[in-house]
Design a protein around this nucleic acid. Structure first.
Lengths: 201, 201
DNA sequence: TCATTATATGACTACCCGGTCACACTATAG
DNA sequence: CTATAGTGTGACCGGGTAGTCATATAATGA
């Protein structure tokens, strides 16, 4: 847990620290990340950092909490689940939105990707809760007769998120290419699980 | 490429080095791995190591070659690209074989998984060449009229490998579950890109 | 005003890393 | 026996890391 001195800091300084943390934690996994790099980017002296946090782990945990709050706020705009839009369109729209919004969000994707490798219990919990929302969308689409009922909803979401993370990394700065590939992959999955029976009345 | 001095080493010493490399490369990604740790475990002095190899990358490449030879007989069953088997069946068969054979294999699997997550340019190059084989299979299936011609072959392989790596990590020790999920995912992708036109004569 | 407390700071420690190099040793050939 | 070439070796280099600490400065309260 960060010390009181951290919470007493100006918002501007706190933001600067979190921004620097985001830069670093989205580039390297926790164990490979450099605290020196973070404080350099944040423009705060080494000594000051240790006035605010116990150590690197302390910062990481605090950062994750902050990041998931940021995340939740942004996603709340979409929570509505518009009735005419299927899960694939939603994923695509939200991803596109991520990129248009300040370009900060995609960095969180990288953080998540690097977290996935660490595979700690703590991270599994966060990931689970973030995919649940999409799993529910798949299930809704099943009920609407758009998707074969025997399909494993969680598996579909795992396919999408795995590809999304991976592809995001692979394409580096070429975001257009990433979005195009994601769109193509979504189309393949959609065609692969679409309900061919005419059960709609 | 290792130097002659390495090949002139006793088999016992060579094995000791590869064993130590396996231990390290299965625990940490290439860029996170420690050469010092490897030579310590292998019980050879730093100076000697550089008599055998140019650098850490040299050892890694050499180790990969050795590892893939170790599994040579395993993969040789499949290398032939049997004419009646499509890319999906091949992936599934190879994966199953990979996991069912031997107790040494899991370590090598860890190496492969960590490789998938490492983003250094060095690793990217290696990874590319290893997926090429599967990309070619997709293209062959296209020519055979099994897969829609407009599909991006590389994208398909990326979807499969991303899911495979991710799912492997997610399911931890539950290999049966992993294989089942992979099978289901392959089915979805297959259905998503199968050629529905009747162009076969 | 002055003493006390909280915060700011960067030089410093100890320990990693990959890689080099001068030197020691050994084997072979003349 | 001696010269030479091949191999073994660990101290060392430059640069990175996380974390510490004495001291300087600012803020606070009596």
């Amino acid at each position: 847990m960060p010390k009181n001195t951290f919470y007493n800091l100006s918002d501007e300084k706190k933001t600067r620290i979190f921004d620097a943390a985001l830069q670093e934690f989205s580039k390297r996994s926790f164990s490979a990340s450099s605290l020196n790099q973070i404080i350099k980017n944040a423009g705060i002296p080494k000594g000051s950092f240790y006035q605010y946090f116990d150590n690197k782990e302390d910062l990481y945990l605090c950062f994750l909490e902050y990041a998931s709050k940021e995340n939740a706020e942004l996603l709340s705009n979409f929570k509505g689940m518009e009735p005419d839009v299927d899960v694939f369109e939603t994923v695509m729209n939200e991803t596109r939105e991520f990129h248009e919004k300040g370009k900060i969000m995609p960095k969180y994707i990288e953080v998540a990707m690097l977290m996935a490798v660490d595979n700690s219990e703590f991270i599994l919990k966060i990931r689970k809760s973030s995919t649940d929302r999409y799993v529910k969308m798949v299930e809704r689409d099943k009920e609407r007769g758009l998707i074969k009922p025997e399909v494993d909803s969680e598996l579909v979401i795992n396919m999408i998120s795995a590809f999304s993370y991976n592809e995001y990394f692979r394409n580096g700065s070429d975001k257009e290419r990433y979005l195009k590939n994601l769109s193509n992959a979504l189309k393949i999955i959609k065609d692969g699980i679409k309900n061919t029976e005419i059960t709609k009345e």
